[in-house]
């Protein structure tokens, strides 16, 4: 389970301090979970431990489909905003992300730091472990209405 330390690290990552911009991108390999950045940072659907993994997978799909940028939540708590993903030709868009949402991946790509944010251009997903955080066992679906009741008229 993630810890408060992760949230703090994220807060630092998105701190109000405008960092110096990197003049050139840095080639990086990042391992972490593809997350729904809106629900993760806004807290509207729950704490950071609840809005990741299997518990939040359905909501994360809706958010990504609706245009919410996705991020990679690295093991150290850093969140990398995904600007582009492999073959997609749009900024943080396209259908590929739907196949990866909530998965733990390792991505090769280019890291840009700007305005205190870390942006990642994913050139290749070199491994995909699938959804590895079964936190629905603790939280159930988050939010519950993300999965419509098939019996509801």
């Amino acid at each position: 389970m993630k810890t408060i330390g992760r949230a703090l690290a994220v807060a630092v990552c998105l701190s109000w301090t405008v960092s110096a911009s990197a003049a050139t991108p840095e080639r990086v390999q990042i391992t972490g979970e593809i997350i729904d950045t809106w629900c993760y940072f806004s807290g509207v659907m729950g704490g950071p431990d609840a809005v990741v993994g299997s518990a939040h997978h359905t909501c994360a799909l809706w958010c990504a489909a609706g245009g919410i940028p996705v991020g990679v939540l690295a093991d150290d708590g850093t969140v990398y905003m995904v600007l582009k993903l492999e073959s997609e030709d749009h900024v943080a868009g396209g259908g590929t992300i739907m196949d990866l949402q909530s998965d733990r991946i390792t991505a090769d790509g280019l890291l840009y730091e700007r305005d205190g944010l870390k942006y990642l251009v994913v050139e290749e997903v070199v491994s995909n472990e699938g959804i590895t955080n079964p936190n629905h066992e603790d939280y159930g679906p988050v939010p519950p209405f993300a999965i419509p009741d098939p019996n509801k008229k």
Partner: peptide, 18 residues
């Protein structure tokens, strides 16, 4: 620059003003 919509208005304004 880009402004992710997840940023709050205060942060958007701060970045913009910079």
């Amino acid at each position: 620059t880009l402004l992710p919509p997840i940023l709050g208005p205060e942060r958007m304004a701060e970045i913009t003003l910079s």
